[in-house]
Amino acid sequence: MPVLILGATSRIAQAIAAEYAAAGETLYLAARDADEAERIAADLRVRHSATATAAAFDARDFDSHPALIAAAAEAMGGIDIAIVAFGETGEQKESESDFRKALSVIEVNYTGAVSVCEALAAHMAAHATENRSGVIAGISTVAGDRGRPSNYFYGSAKGGFSLYLQGLRGRMRRHGVHVMTAKLGFVDTPMTYGLKTRIPIASPEAAARAITRGIRRRKDTLYYPRFWRFVMFAIKAIPERLFKRLSV
């Protein structure tokens, strides 16, 4: 099963790639830093004797996305699984004072993610057959379930992406293409390095196992770590009049 990973230098994406490489799958690693993606591909080749190719990819360069998807499909002889892993939290305060910063967060997490998903959807719908259907897995966040002052640019872009994936899931059903939304809580990557919290932080490897298992089981929405489903259920239940006073 050929696997395409978009944002392959993300630590979670690297762990996902290792899971698939260990299972003998072919990989196409697309990342902004193509040299780094090549080092990751080399690692998979040595450790797992995997076939892995690296390529340059920028989530904000929308026009380039269809060609990238075509190149990946060409290189691997199709795409069975695509993981949309890239993301950018930005600095909330900077986004408030400089809209260009906010725009970057929106473009990476929402517009760029939607752009690649559209290219993927078109490709997968066109190439779906009896025995090839395809999975698109988008990595979103629990922070997209409710808007909060501390990170609402990132949260709303990711929340928008979650809604988009929900819609796409329905649309792609008749093509046999499955769409999974992975809503992650804290995972130990550069995004959370230095975060002081009592809430448990998952390892990237554990998150990767949960995501690949979710894909195997054709889950619609995956929360990982799983307790976040209940936490977010409770948070969403707080009336807005109260919620807006909470400093979270």
Binding site: R11, R39, I40, D43, V46, R47
Partner: peptide, 9 residues
């Protein structure tokens, strides 16, 4: 510790 790639063998 996360500079942990094997580059060739």
């Amino acid at each position: 510790e996360r500079l942990d790639r094997i580059l060739g063998f």
